[in-house]
Amino acid sequence: MITLTDSEDLVDFGPIPPEINRLLQQGVDIHPSDPARARAFFRTAIELAPDVLPSYRCLFKLQNKLRDFESARETATSALFRARTQAGLDADWRRWTLAQLTAAPEYPARFVLMFLKALAFIELRDGHEDLAAAYLAQLEQLDPEDGVGASVIAALLAHREA
């Protein structure tokens, strides 16, 4: 068992159940040295509380880092489904509007944007520039202030296309 004692080293995942927070903190703590165990912590968190959105983010970030793009894509897609359901958005992300996102509860709406950005990045890294561009175009509409930093992914895409 891993024991975390220094609260300054903890990641603030927001209002999540303490047992899920412990799993995520443990996974974050060991991911550089033991990615397989970290993945198990993140998956366990998702299995125990599938509506806790930060768990998905931890898992797909690890999968992406490990260049396991198929798994990262599946996790991010599942995450987006959960977030959009909590936000009360349509099943098709292409039909979402800024007005709908603004009217949605803030917590899942923020994750909707993060998960769209993640999918754009995963698709770009996996060589699917057209799909990455589609996600980025939607993010420009939904997040005109670039609060989630999609412009970084857009710059990477523009560099690839140049």
Rank of each mutant, 00 (worst) to 15 (best):
A72C: 11
R39M: 06
Q26L: 03
Y56Q: 07
V52D: 03
A134E: 10
A104Q: 04
L131W: 11
L80W: 15
L24T: 04
I122C: 14
A99N: 07
A91P: 09
R125W: 07
L48Q: 06
P50D: 14
R125H: 13
F121N: 08
F42E: 04
D130I: 00
A118W: 13
P32L: 02
I20L: 00
I30D: 04
L59A: 07
D34G: 00
D29N: 02
R73G: 11
A38W: 13
F121I: 15
Y107S: 01
F81G: 10
E123Q: 08
R84C: 14
L53D: 14
A76M: 12
T44D: 06
E106F: 14
P18W: 09
S71E: 13
P108F: 05
A104E: 06
A120I: 14
A87P: 06
D92E: 15
D34Y: 08
L124Q: 09
Y56V: 13
T102Q: 06
T97Y: 08
P105V: 15
R39W: 12
Q141D: 11
A49M: 05
V112E: 10
S33Q: 11
I122S: 13
T44G: 02
L131A: 09
N21P: 08
A118M: 14
A38M: 01
P32E: 04
M114E: 14
T97N: 00
T75Q: 02
P105I: 14
L116D: 04
A83H: 08
I122G: 15
I20E: 02
L59C: 05
T75R: 03
S33N: 10
L98F: 08
E19W: 10
T85D: 08
L119N: 11
F115V: 01
F115G: 01
D130M: 01
C58Y: 12
F42Q: 01
I122Y: 12
A72I: 14
F115H: 04
R110Y: 10
E70I: 00
L139F: 12
E70H: 00
R125N: 08
G27I: 12
E70N: 01
R22Q: 09
N21M: 10
S33I: 06
A99G: 04
L124A: 07
D130A: 05
A109C: 04
I16H: 01
A134S: 04
D90Q: 02
Q25R: 07
E70V: 00
R57G: 14
